[in-house]
Design a protein around this nucleic acid. Structure first.
Length: 349
RNA sequence: UAUAAAGCAGUUCUA
């Protein structure tokens, strides 16, 4: 069972949960007794694929094997419900969990995150209170979740405050906590505060990672401060942190927004030479820039190029070009492109 | 051997 679980886990992590399930059905249960780990893995697979019905069926199936779902499996399913946006089901399920066992810090953090992502930040904060009252101690993940939630609810001050509070209670913020705050401050146009937090991280000996730098670079780019963004990029590489695909996409997008389209294209060319393959987001930024500059023909060329490079346009890419065509009065061409998109099996939003 | 948190592109030029 141990061996099979490792295999199933590997399959699920590579999005092959269907295959994992077949192996479970056709091999594992014919030869041995599955355990709670087996079910935990499979439930996660179906949850990540959004197939909640199947996941629920597996939870029920556990009983046939004389197993009762442990908190880990229940938490996994709760997470699945939250991610699928089934918040009311998630709340129901949380109450069910509470009837049978004590929810743990992961149960609470999962639900707090679900509430935040559903825009119910006040409920999320109340739940933090409630967990403390029930004697469950929040950890750095719980706090980071709320810091992120507060930022996304446009309450960066309160997020900052919470970071202070957790520190006072003896929990050190980690790189995720700081990054959530930095990103939030940037998106609330508080770039200078974001840079201060960056300094604070240095003082606290909490090294920034690629996500942290990219968040700040994105903030600077979106504010049109591309030169400063480049400086941060230099600081990043000097510090031994490797920019990833998202980092470069952010810079390409920044150049497009400041109408430095040629520089953006040059950068993409250079990245290709260095074996970084542009992805659908990179191309979409370029196409968006070209469209906004009225260079729709060139945008169409880039779309063609995507196809040739094995990076097919998605719904967002098409939407950008369709909008671009409409804005230059080529509504008929736009309509044709829409039909073309539907032919490719993409669903307009 | 299984569970929770952070970063990228599109839709109302609001003169």
């Amino acid at each position: 069972t141990f061996t099979y679980n490792c295999l199933l886990d590997a399959l699920v992590r590579t999005k092959q949960h269907r295959k994992a399930y077949k192996i479970y059905r056709r091999e594992l249960i014919r030869q041995m007794q599955p355990d709670i780990f087996t079910f935990g893995i499979l439930v996660r697979g179906f949850c990540n694929a959004g197939e909640l019905g199947e996941a629920k069926a597996l939870l029920d199936e556990m009983e046939k094997f004389g197993l009762s779902p442990g908190l880990v499996t229940l938490n996994t399913f709760l997470h699945g419900l939250c991610r699928a946006g089934e918040l009311s089901s998630a709340l129901d399920f949380f109450h069910q969990i509470s009837e049978h066992s004590e929810p743990d810090v992961i149960t609470y953090s999962t639900l707090i995150d679900g509430l935040c992502k559903a825009g119910k930040i006040d409920d999320a904060c109340s739940l933090l209170q409630k967990m403390v009252e029930k004697g469950c101690v929040p950890n750095v993940v719980t706090y980071s979740t709320l810091v992120d939630g507060l930022c996304k609810a446009n309450k960066p001050e309160e997020a900052h405050q919470l970071l202070h509070e957790m520190t006072k209670r003896g929990y050190s913020p980690n790189v995720v906590t700081y990054t959530a705050l930095i990103d939030g401050l940037c998106k609330c146009d508080r770039l200078d505060s974001a840079m201060e937090v960056m300094e604070q991280m240095k003082k606290e000996k909490c090294p920034a990672n690629a996500v942290t730098y990219t968040s700040l670079i994105n903030g600077l780019c979106k504010a049109g401060r591309v030169d400063e963004a480049h400086k941060v990029l230099q600081e990043m590489t000097a510090g031994g942190c490797i920019p990833d695909a998202v980092t470069y996409n952010v810079i390409v997008d920044g150049l497009c927004r400041t109408n430095e389209l040629d520089k953006a294209q040059e950068l993409v060319q250079e990245l290709v030479k260095r074996d970084y393959t542009p992805n659908v987001v990179t191309y979409s930024s370029l196409i968006s820039g070209l469209c906004k500059a009225g260079r729709v023909e060139e945008a169409l060329d880039v779309m063609q190029e995507m196809w040739q490079n094995g990076c097919p346009a998605n719904v967002i890419t098409y939407t950008i070009v369709i909008d671009g065509l409409c804005k230059v009065g080529k509504v008929d061409a736009a309509y044709k492109l829409l039909e073309h998109m539907v032919d490719k099996g993409l669903v307009p939003t």
